[in-house]
């Protein structure tokens, strides 16, 4: 017993050192993985963003300070792409949050068939992105697509409608395909958070005479903050940088309607072979993404 106390005293005395050491030890694996794999690519693209690096001119690669950034920021098309990215992201994240909350609330109840439903909702997530993109492309097809076929048979339209080919519909339709695939993860993250709300909070509130809406607003929603934060950060990052569906469904078309920032970066990098400006755009996007993540954490996070 006395050994225990001495040990504790000893430990407390060295607490700072031990804490710092164990933190270091615990962080070491993840940091070394990131250092080997992730740090170089990030610095590399930062580095190239300061050069006028056009691959078709391999012998003339001048260091141009912030010229690439100036060039990108003064490009009209860049700002148009930014606006489209913003509308795609807002649309998607809001839809994902609402749907995920709804699904999580449903799965939080206990009822017959819950297991079945919770396994089914994971399916969209499990379809490889490529197959998912082609599936939606085929569903949206104006000539043969299932969407037109279904709406016509239900009598909601009287002739086939142009979907992706209509610039006003393109972004919402792609957002729908994106949301469909992303919702399962979001729902799980919110559900997991829901599971960590202590039951006695509800009991106490009931004793105090709070009705359901009050309990939902005063207990459930605030307790879900960490879940919302995770979902918002993750899905914002995913949506703002999303590329695959734009590539598979429309290649930026029709007439720039889906020319979002990630598509612009792809075009600049791989089509135009301008690695310098492509990297500059990526860095601008990265800064914005980071700022958003920071704001979300400050808004919803507890202590991070």
């Amino acid at each position: 017993m006395s050994g225990f106390y001495t040990g504790l005293k000893y430990t407390l005395a060295r607490r700072f050192n031990y804490e710092a050491r164990s933190a270091g030890l615990f962080l070491f694996p993840v940091m070394s993985v990131l250092a080997v794999v992730a740090v170089f690519p990030i610095l590399y693209s930062l580095y190239t963003s300061f050069f006028n690096l056009k691959l078709t001119r391999p012998h003339r690669v001048p260091f141009v300070w912030f010229d690439n950034y100036v060039k990108v920021l003064s490009d009209e098309l860049f700002w148009e792409s930014v606006m489209r990215t913003v509308s795609f992201t807002v649309m998607s994240v809001v839809a994902i949050l609402i749907l995920a909350l709804f699904i999580a609330l449903l799965l939080n109840e206990s009822f017959h068939g819950r297991r079945f439903i919770s396994a089914m909702i994971l399916i969209p997530w499990a379809i490889p992105t490529v197959a998912n993109g082609l599936l939606w492309k085929w569903i949206y097809d104006s000539g043969y697509g299932a969407l037109n076929g279904l709406l016509l048979q239900l009598g909601l339209i009287d002739k086939y409608v142009v979907w992706l080919g209509d610039p006003d519909k393109t972004i919402p339709l792609i957002a729908n395909a994106f949301v469909w695939k992303e919702v399962p993860l979001a729902a799980i993250l919110i559900l997991v958070t829901m599971k960590s709300i202590p039951v006695d909070l509800y009991q106490a509130a009931r004793v105090d005479g709070a009705n359901l809406l009050q309990r939902f607003v005063h207990i459930t929603l605030p307790s879900l903050k960490p879940g919302f934060m995770l979902v918002m950060i993750y899905e914002t990052m995913m949506a703002i940088r999303h590329f695959d569906l734009f590539f598979l469904l429309t290649e930026g078309g029709p007439a720039d309607a889906s020319h979002v920032l990630s598509w612009q970066i792809y075009v600049e990098t791989f089509r135009n072979l301008s690695f310098g400006t492509g990297s500059a755009m990526s860095y601008i996007l990265a800064l914005v993404t980071f700022a958003l993540a920071y704001a979300i954490i400050k808004m919803l996070g507890r202590r991070i």
Partner: peptide, 18 residues
């Protein structure tokens, strides 16, 4: 978190080098 804010498209070539 910072390691995930850069679009993957921009990381393809440097990742390839690594």
């Amino acid at each position: 978190l910072t390691t995930r804010v850069i679009p993957d498209i921009a990381l393809v070539v440097p990742f390839f080098l690594v």
